[in-house]
Nucleic acid binder design. Sequence first.
DNA 1: ATTAGCACTCTAACACGATGAGTGCTAACA
DNA 2: TGTTAGCACTCATCGTGTTAGAGTGCTAAT
Lengths: 344, 344
Amino acid sequence: MELDERKIKILNSIIQTYLITGEPVGSRTISKYTDLNLSSATIRNEMSDLEEMGYIIQPHTSAGRIPSDKGYRFYVDNLMKEKVAEVDEVKEVFLQKADKIDRLLKQVAKLLAVNTNYATMISGPQYKRNKIKFVQLSRVEADQLLVVIMIDGNIIKNRLIQVRQEVGEEEVAKLNIVLNTYLQGLSLMEINMELVQRMKVQASEYQEIIREVIDAIAVAVQEEDDLEIYTSGTTNLLSYPELNDKEKARALISTLEEKKELTDLLLNAPDDDEGEKRGIQVYIGSETPVTSMKDCSIVTATYELEEGVQGTIGIIGPKRMDYKKVVGNLQTLMNQLDEIYKKK
Amino acid sequence: MELDERKIKILNSIIQTYLITGEPVGSRTISKYTDLNLSSATIRNEMSDLEEMGYIIQPHTSAGRIPSDKGYRFYVDNLMKEKVAEVDEVKEVFLQKADKIDRLLKQVAKLLAVNTNYATMISGPQYKRNKIKFVQLSRVEADQLLVVIMIDGNIIKNRLIQVRQEVGEEEVAKLNIVLNTYLQGLSLMEINMELVQRMKVQASEYQEIIREVIDAIAVAVQEEDDLEIYTSGTTNLLSYPELNDKEKARALISTLEEKKELTDLLLNAPDDDEGEKRGIQVYIGSETPVTSMKDCSIVTATYELEEGVQGTIGIIGPKRMDYKKVVGNLQTLMNQLDEIYKKK
DNA sequence: ATTAGCACTCTAACACGATGAGTGCTAACA
DNA sequence: TGTTAGCACTCATCGTGTTAGAGTGCTAAT
């Protein structure tokens, strides 16, 4: 059987209506509120076909139809014309220029959650590919040093290290010079053992400290489990009747709170492909890798602050989420980010 | 009417039973499972009295009784003998010695949530009374400086500042000396204008930078809105039937997510009074200052890591929460904290 | 190919009665 | 005077039966 023009129109109608009402839609509704001028009986036949083809589902014998995952997928891929989003507020928020990046991310998450009325999550940027801007060693106590590492993108990490031998101010100053001469401008991957050896030679009796510092840098920069994920609006999900199985809702919000499971989702996001849809990905129902979200849909987008500093934003809602709006929102958000961070 | 020995025993029985079952308890249950050897009829009379006195409530005519807020209050104040908690795991967690304090707090929150099956919240420590351990100024770009501030308790704050005039490495070194000579060992309150003036004189043409740095310190140290609050186990609350009004549950979890409203609760916690109950506070039902938690009880405790570095932990559960266990848990937790941080 | 009409199915909503837990009251008892 | 047995009463809960309405699938007519 083929998906002809008319079937597509009907399918679109069904999905549109369902997105708004959240209730199964019947043949009569479609017949009345479409410009096709067909009787409900005809629609019924078409719907029967659509069901057979797997685009829609009947929850029970005498109910209307609701879109299946396949139906939503078709909608997202072919029928949806993106809305130009009305998120001008975004700009406002960014102009406050939150200096600390995590605060910014929290704001974005919240803004999106309020705007869309879905749950949002956002992962902090990954630094791995980044270069060390400078390293600063300071003496706290005789046997305690503070390492401050600044990475491209003005991200600052601190690390406190204990050393066995005592060090004085002058040595610290000397070490600072060594460290910066060798490390500045390097990414973590570029720090190899040969380099470390050379540094150790330079540091003469303070080899151990060099080793400690390198370790600290590695930990601070890599810090896989430091992947911060901020969520917002999780309780929005409680207001969608299709998710009101209590146990499921609980599991869902729990995953959002735990955050562990979300990492996969956010890290495996596709790269920014710079096309119209720039790294925007839609998971529908069982397409998502997280089991507790089988009844939801997730839209993710990859943002990039500066070269190589990138993270992911995700929006979680019911399968009948307003895909247009969500995608639109994300798109403008990405643009805003570009505008502010890249053109700066 | 007086609350005699027998009435107290009965009240205690009712509360105990209700804590376990979560269902209204009837006269017959008490008569059977108490060593008072009284018939249900007698119990009924007594219960009638207790109701009149306001300690218990009848949800509807033909149901058993449940404790009122007043009843719980009496229980907490007079009847409860604290359980010695079985939170030896706490020690384990602490020994991992999470170097970053916020990670530690998250762990504690989670541990408590898992242990008690209630929701927990924990506020990061307040630094206000703390002394500056050292200040470190570093040159990032010609017109961009990084201020690293370390406070007692090894808490590190970073601040990036823009300056109008350009500064070279030597000036930064000089400024560092000035800053540390004047500021080391001072608390924010002790930095007065006179001191700032003296520093400015020393810094000669770099007065502006001194001002900027002081500002940065003030912001970084004070940072009221930076009060981090971590929550955990919020979804635990969904499993208590008495909180399953959907709208209420939503509001409740929402407050926990928003965190704004929690600040009052956590900041106004009473000081550590070093007695047996060391700063542990119990809010029952309508006693709490947060409206969405009218149907819950909250237990808060104040912890202190080092002199002056203190914050608050809160546990939120249904009114029939296991007060003994919660208070016990918090108490051992406090002790552990003391042991590890103070005796060090 | 489309449509009107009809029989059929299924859910949601409501009423009804049975059940049982629990109470309050009264009268008898120690 | 305190305690208890007994009984009538209340009320939430649960299962059942009924009804209304929405929606379908099929068939026959257009």
